[in-house]
Design a binder for these strands. Structure first.
Length: 336
DNA sequence: TAGTCGTGGGT
DNA sequence: TACCCAAGACT
């Protein structure tokens, strides 16, 4: 059956009423700040992972002013372990822009929101619809998956052409009224029945209108990303200690683990004699083999300007990359 | 357009 | 084990 926007909205709002999530932390005491923070944390990150970070973060920084007045290191410390640290740096930058240029209040139109660092079209749409009672489309992974199936949109959803088609459909089907409930329903449906694997099409409210289901091709949509073999990288890290102190190196703002403290990297080939351990850590776009080597000297440290001593007892209050933190806490038998 | 940017969970 | 990818944005 042809699916009109009105029928789509009716189905989705019914699903929201019966099965939608209404108890998430950012759905309580809704403000633009709280919605914005949740949306940034939720980028490429599952709800279950975000919740404890969100609760901790809002406790420390209940509003945008307290965040704008903080130190970046405190923000990164609360973010450590969540990944994609550019999000935290942009979050901080955004808070300061809103304080300086928007009188401490989030702008209420899509164009201005999208100029802010870390806020793209989908995040802007979520802020407008969830916290400002405006009609604006979103296009996160859940919505992409639903639309790609219902309308059998060909192509990997990351490709520009496919993305444009999906945005156009999302615009067309996002209702003027009850947009918050509709958008939430789309994400809830995508996170439950319309899951990536083993979707429960038999009980889906859209199944009579879903082209992929009708053609028995649900497993083929959305089309998979073209597979590429990930490069493998090698890096030696130096464990340099003196009494109860450890030598750490601040990562430059851009690049992997930007702004975090890490073990200093060795220059040249790795020392063979005093290797402590070696393990693998995988990222989205490469595999990293980490070698941790003991070194009483500091001769091999690559960038001494950004390095300094820290007390071992302060490690839990320092933002560290997850694999480095895991190694250090195990090595020194610290409580996490 | 294609890479970059983390970590954890599912299969 | 290896691969995919999740409430994306930026370069």
């Amino acid at each position: 059956m042809l699916l009109s926007p009105a029928v789509m909205a009716e189905k989705m709002l019914g699903f929201y009423r019966d099965h939608g999530r209404k108890d998430l932390p950012w759905q309580q005491n809704t403000t633009p700040y709280r919605v914005w923070l949740s949306e940034i944390m939720l980028q490429q990150t599952q709800v279950k992972t975000v919740i404890p970070y969100y609760l901790k973060f809002t406790q420390h920084f209940p509003d945008i002013t307290s965040l704008a007045n903080a130190d970046l290191d405190d923000v990164l410390n609360l973010w450590q372990g969540l990944g994609y640290y550019a999000r935290a740096r942009n979050l901080y930058k955004c808070a300061q822009i809103i304080r300086a240029e928007f009188n401490g209040e989030f702008p209420g139109d899509i164009e201005q929101l999208e100029t802010l660092p870390g806020i793209g079209r989908s995040t802007a749409g979520a802020i407008l619809s969830f916290s400002m009672n405006q009609s604006a489309p979103i296009l996160d992974g859940n919505v992409k998956r639903i639309l790609a199936r219902v309308f059998m949109v060909e192509g990997w959803t990351g490709a520009g052409k496919t993305l444009n088609q999906l945005w156009q459909i999302s615009e067309q089907y996002t209702p003027e009224e009850n947009t918050a409930e509709f958008n939430q329903a789309m994400m809830d449906l995508g996170a439950s029945l319309c899951s990536r694997s083993k979707p429960q099409c038999e009980i889906c409210p859209l199944n009579k209108h879903c082209q992929a289901f009708i053609h028995n091709l649900v497993e083929d949509f959305p089309n998979k990303k073209p597979a590429k073999k990930l490069p493998v990288k090698e890096q030696t890290f130096l464990l340099i200690t003196q009494n109860d102190q450890i030598y750490l190196q601040k990562q430059p703002p851009a690049g992997i683990w930007g702004g975090l403290w890490s073990l200093p990297g060795a220059e040249g080939s790795s020392p063979k004699q005093n290797i402590i351990t070696r393990f693998k850590h995988s990222f989205t776009h490469f595999h990293l083999y980490l070698t941790i080597a003991m070194d009483e000297q500091k001769y091999l440290v690559s960038d001494k300007a950004l390095s300094q001593w820290h007390n071992l007892s302060d490690l839990e209050r320092i933002a560290l990359p997850t694999p480095i933190r895991k190694f250090l806490f195990k090595h020194f038998q610290l409580e996490n």
